[in-house]
Each structure stands twice: as structure tokens, then as C-alpha cells.
Amino acid sequence: MSADGTIHARGIRKSFGPKLVLKDVDLDIASGEICCIIGPSGSGKSTLLRCVNGLETVDSGVLKVNGEDLGYYETETAFHALSKKEIAEQRTRIGMVFQQFNLFPNMTSRENIMAGPVLVKGADRKESAKRAQELLASVGLAGFGDYYPAQLSGGQQQRVAIARSLAMDPEIMLFDEPTSALDPEKVGEVLAVMKDLAKKGMTMVVVTHEMGFAREVSDSLLFMDEGVVVERGDARAVLADPKELRTKAFLDKVL
């Protein structure tokens, strides 16, 4: 069976200086699974997501994404870091959507979407432009190809950012609080795009505060607090009937 689109983590530890932010975290995500990670700020949920993309390196533990050890290769005695080129290659298979969109302000929406395929994969410009047009249409921004990020609203920018990640044809999409920086009225348009994506069978890991999205779309739910996975299970089951006291206390406050 192909391991594409899967994430497997065992005993991940990560510290920033003396502060341990991930304490033996386990994570198993099947291909096509939609997993929401919730928890209070500072619980390590964003860090976990950033580790899965290689933006942070884990201190110890096993982390396999798409069936490969992320950023390292394993020998008898240790994990050895891969070359930058190999890491970049692995990253092209993982899409990342940031809270602050992080579109390149010096490029139009279309150029942003084409940047990955053309600059990194060396794809044909014309075909990439056509693909970019399709992707823009799929996020509801068909006429916005020539707009620069600064000319778009937050919700529009985030949808372009999603299209930019999708242009690389990743097996996994990671969302780091994708709607937290948006005006409340723009949240819906971004969630709609994400729901579309979920229906197409993309593996998605979403760090979010949108409990409605978690309930409606998510397969599994992970509740983290202080660097530990407190509870995990079926999304609707956890939201309706949390087993842990800590989860219950958190949900009572946010729901």
C-alpha cells in the first residue's frame, strides 16, 4: 500500500531553549483523512504542524511524512540530515497555508501560484499559467490573476495562498490557523474552499479555532495542551462528549 498522504509520528520532542513545547507527541493520519488540531494558544499545536512541514526540526522521535523520514535518513545508530535539495524535494509534496497568508507581495496572484511549479519544478510557463487560472477559478477568484496581494482582501489573499500550495500537487495540505487573521465575514469564504478540498480526498491537517468546521468536515480531532496530546478521536464524538476534563473545560469556553 502506498504511504502517500500519510503522516506518522511517534514520541516527538521539541524544545525552544529550555522550554519543552512538544512532549512525546504521537500522530497518525491516514491518506485522505481530515484532522483538526485544537487547543489553547501555546499548547504546541502550531509547532507540531510546523514540524510536519520541516519548518522546525524535531529534537527526537520518529516523523514520517508520505512514508519517508522527514528531513533525515535513518541508519543503525542515528538520523542523518538530508541535503537541502532533498529536503526541498520532500517539501514540495507538503502544502502549507499560513495564518498570515505570506503571499509574495512582489508577484501577482497568478505569479504567486506559478512560482512553485515554474521556479521549483521547472514546469512550462504557459501550462502553469493555464493551471493557475484553473486553480484561481476553483477558489472563486477567476478574474483576479493580475491583482497583487495588497489589492486583495484577507480572505481573497488566503484563497490565493491555498491555490499556491495546491499548484505543487501536494499529497498533504497543512493549515496553520488559516482563518485567524481574517475579518469574521471573510472566514466563510476560506472555509468553503477548504471544505471543497476535503471532499476531493486531500489529506488535511488543520490547526484551527473554528469548531464548526471541525464538527462538519473533520474526521478526527486532536486536543493539545502544554505540548501533550490530551485527547484524540472522532471529531464529532470528541466535540459532543469529551472524555478528558481538560478537553471539556476548553470546549466549554470556546463553544
Binding site: 520541516g54 517539501r91 514540495t92 502549507m96 499560513f98 505570506n102 521556479l119 521549483v120
Partner: peptide, 27 residues
């Protein structure tokens, strides 16, 4: 140039020189 810009370039798998040329220097 914001840290987020570099992370975005990294997440697309851009090489160091590419990042410099297409993302950092223009900004």
C-alpha cells in the same frame, strides 16, 4: 523582509539562491 516570506518560499521547496533572487532581494 518578513520571516513568513522566507517560510512560504521554503514550504514551496525553493532553493537558497532562488529565495534570494525571487523573494528576498525584490522585497
Amino acid at each position: 523582509v518578513g520571516k513568513g516570506q522566507i517560510e512560504a518560499a521554503d514550504s514551496l521547496g525553493m532553493s537558497g539562491a532562488m529565495k534570494m533572487r525571487k523573494v528576498i532581494i525584490p522585497q
